[in-house]
């Protein structure tokens, strides 16, 4: 469900800006927090709590999920089977993606070569459209897996998930905001989805960073231009929680992407347009307010020309 007030922040470890963002929203009182992406370190949130003057209440979604797995092995088995299906789907998607991306890159390389003027652009457009269609197909397949799972297992109606949901709702009802930290993006998304956390929120604002920023968008795109193994093609991983629209969140873009490579930047932006590909490095901030985006000064987006421009420019 699209929310009315969401703030996406850059990574918080070395230069935390969360408190400033909370203050700027006028948030008073308790702040519910999600650190499930940190997995077994979920409760090691003392720095986060201190940063917000001990106003946080950790929803403990990772622990709660472990409890559900223990209490409801049937659901746990079903979730593992879904995970395996999604993993295989991702493998198949990756096989197709690698060829399409290589074709798109090769055509883009030839754009500047003599003799191709007037010929190459339709070919480039066609190659990028093919990637976009594949991304769309993949998202649809992933969505179908989740719909089928939800219809068959109705996880939120099952006893132990429902019990935890009631507790989470109590916390959220008495909280003024929800903050979502980063970590393992698939685990974080899985836990938030299992308990339907965003559906339990009223109108409180959400502040999210790193993987947290990725999961509240419509599509979770995983990316790295310079991995030690493989070609480094960004992949659509998942259907996001869609609390915001029209953005692809790219935390640590400065470290993960070749932002000085205009061809790669342009391809990335063209692949996901009209969504804003937001480079969320430390001290950046994007505000989603009543269906519109605005960016704090210094927050950049990847553009189809290959440049980085201020969000809003």
């Amino acid at each position: 469900m699209v929310r009315s007030n969401v703030v996406l922040l850059g990574p918080q470890r070395l230069q935390p800006t969360l408190k400033d963002a909370v203050d700027s929203l006028g948030v008073r009182g308790r702040i519910a927090s999600v650190t499930a992406g940190w997995e077994e370190r979920e409760r090691e949130d003392q720095e986060l709590a201190a940063h917000l003057h001990n106003r946080t209440y950790n929803l403990g979604l990772f622990e709660r999920t472990e409890d559900v797995y223990r209490c409801d092995p049937e659901l746990a088995t079903a979730m593992r089977a879904r995970h395996d299906r999604l993993r295989k789907l991702q493998e198949l998607y990756r096989v197709r993606l690698s060829h399409l991306m290589e074709a798109a890159r090769e055509l883009l390389r030839r754009e500047s070569l003599p003799g191709y003027a007037g010929l190459i652009e339709p070919e480039v457009r066609g190659a990028i459209d093919a990637v976009r269609r594949l991304d769309d197909e993949h998202v649809q397949r992933v969505r179908e897996v989740h719909v089928e799972f939800a219809q068959r297992w109705k996880p939120q109606e099952r006893e132990h998930v429902a019990r935890h949901r009631r507790e989470i709702k109590d916390v959220l009802d008495s909280s003024s905001a929800l903050c979502i930290a980063g970590g393992h993006v698939a685990i974080l998304l899985n836990r938030l989805r299992l308990f339907g956390v965003l559906d339990l929120l009223r109108e409180q604002p959400i502040l999210a960073w790193s993987a947290g920023a990725m999961v509240v968008t419509e599509r979770v795109v995983v990316f790295h231009d310079r991995p030690p193994q493989g070609a480094g093609d960004a992949e659509v991983l998942e259907v996001g929680l869609s609390a915001v629209q029209g953005v692809v969140a790219l935390p640590h873009a400065d470290k993960r992407l070749h932002l000085d490579d205009r061809t790669r930047v342009a391809l990335f932006a063209r692949r996901f347009e009209p969504a804003v590909c937001a480079a969320l490095w430390p001290c950046t901030r994007m505000d989603w307010r009543d269906g519109r985006w605005s960016g704090q000064s210094g927050t950049r987006k990847l553009t189809t020309s290959g440049e980085l421009l201020e969000v809003g420019a």
Binding site: P11, R13, G37, G183, V185, S210, A211, M214, H224, P227
Partner: peptide
């Protein structure tokens, strides 16, 4: 070392965003 270890014991580079 980077090439060898990342091939034999790949980390969660693609999945973890802290």
């Amino acid at each position: 070392l980077r090439e060898g270890l990342s091939w034999l014991a790949p980390g969660q580079l693609w999945m973890v965003y802290e």
